[in-house]
Every structure is written in C-alpha cells, then in structure tokens.
C-alpha cells in the first residue's frame, strides 16, 4: 500500500460525508496501526479480494451514526438496528467507490458489523495497516485500511 492508495480512501471518505450531509469531514494524518485496538462503538468491515486483498473497516460512535440517520431518514430516534445497518453501509460505500480508481477487479464483500469496544478487529499480521482519523462535526471515527 502506498500514498496513492491512501488518497483513494481519503477522497472516498470525504465524498461520502459531503454527499450525504452537505458538510465536509476532515481527515487527519494517516498513521500505521500498532498493537492498540482501534475500535469505537460500531465497526463496519469489508473484505477485499481480487487483484488486491485485505480488508477495510470504519469504526465510529453511536452518536455519529444517530446524527447521520437523522439526516438520511429524518429519524430522530434511530434504533440500534438502524445504527448497525448504517455502519455497514458506510463501509460498503467508501470501499465500493474506490473501484473508480482500482476497477472491477477490486472485489468487495458484503459488510460485517461488529458492536462494542471490547476487542480489536483481527487483521492480517504480515500486511501494513493504516489508520485514517476522521472528524465530522464534533464526532470522531477511524477508517482502517489493510491492503496487500
């Protein structure tokens, strides 16, 4: 994975928030993931296969997801099911949009959603994993990209 790869994911993330909410998300400086867990309330994980292999996940807070659900559905009291579903959909959209750069050989799985901060998300150990901090409104989240 190189800087160009990271830019594809950053652009896709910024575009997601801008299109859906009309407000820009600010991405922080990406860093290499260490042993510390990068897990917030909900994480949406996408497996990558084809020419590139690995996984991408977004991890975020319940508050941010409720705020997004309010914008998308005008739903002020989003249920846990909606919040979980939205986590997977964000991961799917960000990953699917980068096919603009990689083409159709960049295969994405359906999302898997993990709830809770207790454990880290298990990633391939031999591959460098980058963490991209995201701030939208007052909410923090992280996009984690692990690609061979």
């Amino acid at each position: 994975m190189n800087e160009t790869d990271l830019h594809f994911f950053i652009d896709s993330t910024v575009n997601y928030f801008e299109e859906v909410t009309g407000e820009q998300a600010i991405t922080g400086i990406p860093y290499l993931k260490g042993k510390e867990p990068v897990v917030l309330d909900y994480s949406g994980i996408i497996g990558i296969s084809g020419k590139r292999k690995g996984c991408v996940y977004i991890t975020t807070t319940s508050e941010m997801l409720k705020s997004l659900a309010n914008i998308i559905l005008n739903d002020h009291q989003a249920t846990i099911e909606t919040v979980k579903d939205l986590t997977g959909e964000i991961a799917n959209t960000i990953s699917g949009n980068v096919r603009e750069a990689y083409g159709s050989s960049f295969m994405i799985s359906v999302p898997v959603v993990v709830e809770g901060r207790a454990k880290d998300i298990r990633l391939p150990e031999h591959v460098q994993t980058f963490v991209i901090p995201i701030t939208w409104k007052e909410y923090k989240s992280f996009l984690v990209v692990c690609l061979e």
């Binding site: 859906v20 799917n92 959209t93 990953s95 699917g96 949009n97 096919r99 083409g103 159709s104």
Partner: peptide
C-alpha cells in the same frame, strides 16, 4: 443503485438491461 463506482460494472448493468445506474452515496 450501488456503491460500485467503476465503468465496467455500470456498462455491464446497462448491457443486461438496466435503464439507469446511480452511484451511492446519493442525495
């Protein structure tokens, strides 16, 4: 209506018979 933002998939869908191809996220 899909997140898959690549020309090949869009073209394939239209060739099969889709009338429109909208990329997520959508307003």
């Amino acid at each position: 209506i899909t997140a898959l933002k690549d020309k090949a998939t869009g073209l394939r869908a239209i060739q099969i018979g889709a009338k429109s191809y909208l990329v997520k996220p959508f307003t």
